[in-house]
Design a protein around this nucleic acid. Structure first.
Lengths: 274, 274
DNA sequence: CGTTTTGCACCTAGGTGGAAAGAT
DNA sequence: ATCTTTCCACCTAGGTGCAAAACG
């Protein structure tokens, strides 16, 4: 399937075009967006290898494992200097790695569930005076469905992936804001919730349980030019931290994941050492 | 005392001039502001009658008592149409009036205490596409200190006012934002806290206990022009709701105020009917 | 003596995983 | 048999007025 994604958005908390980040499929059109709302994105894919025409990572985006934990996307084509100079550090990287080593699981519920660890980043290199929007989306890591073999404590492929969920984007609710504001302190996506409800109308991210996903983080420069749509491809930069990938579940499968969640999430303190 | 207030601000979450709302005394200079931070404002005054040269209400600003509860300031001089067309409705007006009838008291603590009822407004008439900042400040209602006579259940003048507290302004933390955003729903100043700590460095509003105050609400248009300071006087509009005036206290004096607080504040439910 | 501070019990509001029941 | 839903006890986080102690 050929997927074309277009960056272009109408109406940002406003009744007319302000700037844009619109994502459309070959067959889909535009849409009106508002912060905290979500929007269809291509989620069907055979992984997150390069996809023709996608403005979001068209090359293998890797997160560096250096001391700074900076994600450096590649192959996103020519970029506006206002985004090309942006770098991002994943917060709580050691904790993410600890989970990732065990095989991170994220609970999805009908009502929506937060992620843990929380997706938080430190941002550098923005133009202090320019407006930016920050958003996240989730792409399938493969086309498979999984099941957990309790006896062997291992994930097994259980077949082909279920039909793709409605693709959505989560805008950080402070969007849009000045670069100075985003860089001032750690940016936390703690309003983002994951659900398995295909009919969700709370703006949550919809995922298939027992499928694997890769979170993506996008920085979009809000181009003040009237014809900003023309520069859509240049005005954003995407980041992927491979240590944040996870399997969506309705109940924890790996007991070691459960224990690590309990040990590290303050809200689960009630389950510590019994 | 002659007080001159100047509208002009440097740095809005940003390292250089963006737009401004700076308030200075005759003897005081400028300052760097950021949302949620506060800033010196003239608080010494012989009431809130007209004050020469003040960009904030220079005429008797009254709140209408009509069905819409719209405050209509007067005598603020020529205004930019982007602010002159703005009207504001006080939310929970009946509750405010109920308190006001008894003599509203607001607790001040070292750590800072919220107001109750909460100061919330509905805003109309903004330019949807323009940027605005919203802020509040508090001015002394008179030059007196009070004490409460429990036996007669009445407030008595206890002398001349204590030295004025450091004047501060509370910017609504969402500032600046588009008119459309502000008008979308009720704007609540629930992050604003009152303190009696003269050395407070949490950005709270500092008040003298046993003194009376009048909250003010200011709408500032963020003028994109380079020389916006020149138009500072034109770019804001102030609103005063007389039913929101109160006496600052460290402990409630009037028992009927206590009862009304308990009856109407959800967080005080633990004290209902004993 | 009037006023302020402190610790506290009691709330609101909402994020946890567990256990049992339900669904397919 | 596998997966999902629901309810719940138990947390975090923080906003209340109260009572006693402290202050000046």
């Amino acid at each position: 399937m050929s997927v074309r994604t277009c960056v272009f958005v109408h109406a940002w908390r406003l009744p007319r075009v302000l700037f844009g980040v619109c994502v459309s499929f070959l067959s889909a059109g535009f849409g009106i967006l508002a912060p905290s709302e979500t929007y269809p994105l291509p989620t069907t894919s055979s992984g997150w290898e390069p996809r023709l025409g996608s403005p979001f990572p068209s090359g293998p985006c890797t997160s560096f494992t250096g001391a700074q934990a900076v994600a450096e996307p590649n192959g996103q084509g020519p970029k506006n200097p206002r985004v090309s100079s942006v770098t991002v550090q994943l917060e709580m990287k050691p904790l993410w790695e600890e989970f990732n080593q065990l095989g991170t699981e994220m609970i999805v519920t009908k009502a929506g569930r937060r992620m843990f660890p929380p997706f938080q980043v430190k941002i550098l290199g923005m133009d202090s005076l320019a407006d930016y929007a920050l958003l996240m989306d989730f792409i399938p890591l493969d086309d498979k469905r999984y099941r957990y073999a309790f006896h062997s404590s291992a994930w097994l492929v259980a077949g082909k992936a279920d039909p793709a969920t409605p693709g959505r984007v989560h805008f950080h609710p402070d969007s849009p804001a000045k670069g100075a504001q985003w860089m001032r302190q750690i940016v936390s996506f703690d309003k983002l919730k994951l659900t398995n409800n295909l009919l969700d109308d709370n703006g949550h991210i919809i995922l298939n349980s027992m499928h694997r996903y890769q979170p993506r983080f996008h920085v979009v420069f809000v181009d003040p030019r009237k014809d900003s749509e023309r520069y859509a491809q240049e005005n954003f930069k995407s980041f992927i931290f491979t240590e944040t990938q996870f399997t969506a579940v309705t109940a924890y499968q790996n007991h070691r994941i459960t224990q690590l969640k309990i040990a590290s999430n303050p809200f689960a303190k009630g389950f510590q050492r019994e």
